[in-house]
Nucleic acid binder design. Structure first.
Lengths: 242, 242
DNA sequence: CCAAAAGTGTTAGCTATACACCCATGC
DNA sequence: GCATGGGTGTATAGCTAACACTTTTGG
C-alpha cells in the first residue's frame, strides 16, 4: 500500500475503553510481525490535509472495523525517541515509506460498551481484543505511557462530567448496574445505601413502570436517564457524585 | 532564515498567562506584517527531531526572550482549515518555505507572575505585550480558539491542583494577596472570613514573624508556602478550597 | 424454606455559607 | 481623628459516612 498521501510526521493513536457490565477493558491490536507477538494501541499515520479527529476515526475503522464512537483527543506525544525499541523499529521499516521520520502522535480516548461494537482485524492488525485494564500488558512503542495517561485523564474527566457514565448503560438499567459501573470507574467498592441516596437526588434519574423479571431474588426497579431534565438542571456546572 | 531543518507540518503555540498582582493577562505578540496589525500567540514550527516540549520553550524564547517557564501541553489543533484568513495566508507565504503545508499545532499553557520575566520582541515578533484577559482581542489564525481553550483548561486544572496558585505569589505574602489571586482565577468575589478559615486549615500555609510595614492601615501578617508540609499532607489526592 | 439481591433510615460529625464589628496603622 | 484594609466568631443548613435488617422472587 503506497503511502504518498500520508503525512509522514503525524499519527493518531486510539485508547478505547470498553465496559462489559462488570469491568473496564482496553482495546488492543496484535500486529502482524515475524516471530513476535506485539500488542499495541490502534494507530497510524494521518493523511495529508486530513482533520485529526477524522483521522482517528478512520484509523480505528481500518484496523478494527469499529466506527461511530466518540473519540476525544487527550494528549500529543512527541519525544524524538518514542519509537526506539528494536522490535518496533523493525516493524516501522516494514510498513512505512519514510521509516526514518520522527513521528508525533495525537492520542484519542473513548469509552464505550463492549457489546455495542463488532470488531474484526484488518490492515496490519492480526487480531483485535478487549484486554482487562487490571491486568498489566506490555505494549509496543510508548503505548503503555499513552494508555496509562489516557486512563488517568478519562477518570479525571468522569469526575467532572459523570454524565459520561450513563452512556455505558442500557436504556433501562437498575441502580445495581449503575453502582457496578461507578465502582469499576473509581476502582473501589461503594456503600449501597449512600450511593442510592445521592444518586436518587438527581432528578434526571427517573423510575420506570418496570421491574426486572426472571431473577431469583427480589426484582429491581428499572430507571432511565432523562437527558432533557439533565440539561435543565445542569445547564451550568453542578455535580453531585464523586 | 532557512527553514530546511524545520518540520513543515508541526508547530507549537504558547498560551502564557501572567498575574500582575491584580488581574490575569495573556502574552501576545504583534507580527511584523505590511499594513496590518495582527496579534497572535507566540508560536512557530518545530525543528526536525526536536522534542515538542523543547520546541515550545525555544519558540517562546526566540519570539519574546522569555525563558525558564513551565509550559504544559494542553491540546493539539489540527483542522485542515485553521489558517484560512487571507491576512494569515499572506503572512505564511512571506515567512514559510512550504507555505502550502497543512500545519497542526500543539498548544502549551503556562501561568506566571508578569514581573518575573523580562521580554523583548525578536524574530518575526514586532512587539510583545501582556493583554488583560477580560478585554476581548481578535487574534490571527485560530488563536482565539486556542487561547480560550487554554484558559478554560488552566482553570480546570487549578481547581484540581490549587497549589499552582502559590507559584504566582512572592515568597512571603498576605492572605489578602492570596485571596485577590483566587478571585482573579475563579472570576468572582469570595467572602473574606470563609476564605481565611478554609485556607488556614492547610498546614502548609505558615505564618511568619513578620508583618507588612508602611501601610496606612492595620498591617497584615505575612505567610509563606511550605512545600515539605504540602507534600506530606497531600501525597495523594486531597483538596480543600474550591 | 432457602438463597440471593433489592430496598430502606438514622445518627453523628463535618463543611459551606451568611453575616457585622473592632483593630492597628499612616497621615 | 479619620480613612483604610486587617482580622475575628457564630449559627444554620446541608452533606458525608457508617451501619443492619426486611422484602421479594425463583427454585
Amino acid at each position: 500500500m503506497s503511502e504518498f498521501h500520508y503525512n509522514p510526521h503525524i499519527s493518531v493513536d486510539c485508547v478505547v475503553f470498553g465496559f462489559d457490565d462488570e469491568k473496564i477493558n482496553i482495546l488492543l491490536i496484535k500486529r502482524k510481525q515475524e516471530g513476535e507477538n506485539v500488542y499495541a494501541l490502534p494507530g497510524d499515520l494521518v493523511q495529508k490535509g486530513e482533520d485529526l479527529d477524522v483521522a482517528a476515526n478512520r484509523v480505528l475503522y481500518e484496523l478494527t472495523s469499529m466506527e461511530n464512537l466518540y473519540l476525544e483527543q487527550f494528549k500529543t506525544f512527541g519525544s524524538p525517541d518514542r519509537t526506539s525499541d528494536p522490535v518496533d523499529v523493525e516493524w516501522i521499516k516494514s510498513v512505512r515509506e519514510h521509516p526514518e521520520a520522527r513521528v508525533i502522535t495525537v492520542a484519542y480516548n473513548s469509552l464505550v460498551k463492549t457489546q455495542d461494537f463488532d470488531y474484526r482485524p484488518s490492515s496490519f492488525a492480526e487480531e483485535v481484543l478487549w484486554h482487562p485494564i487490571e491486568k498489566p500488558q506490555k505494549l509496543g512503542f510508548d503505548h503503555n505511557e499513552i494508555a496509562n495517561t489516557g486512563w488517568a485523564m478519562l477518570r479525571e474527566k468522569i469526575k467532572r462530567e459523570p454524565i459520561i457514565a450513563f452512556s455505558l448503560l442500557p436504556e433501562k438499567f437498575t441502580l445495581r448496574q449503575l453502582q457496578t459501573l461507578y465502582e469499576a470507574l473509581v476502582g473501589q467498592k461503594l456503600d449501597k445505601r449512600n450511593f442510592r441516596k445521592r444518586m436518587l437526588r438527581n432528578r434526571f434519574l427517573v423510575a420506570m413502570n418496570e421491574k426486572e423479571t426472571g431473577v431469583s431474588h427480589k426484582p429491581a426497579q428499572y430507571y432511565r436517564f432523562d437527558d432533557a431534565i439533565y440539561k435543565e438542571d445542569f445547564a451550568k456546572d453542578q455535580w453531585f457524585l464523586f
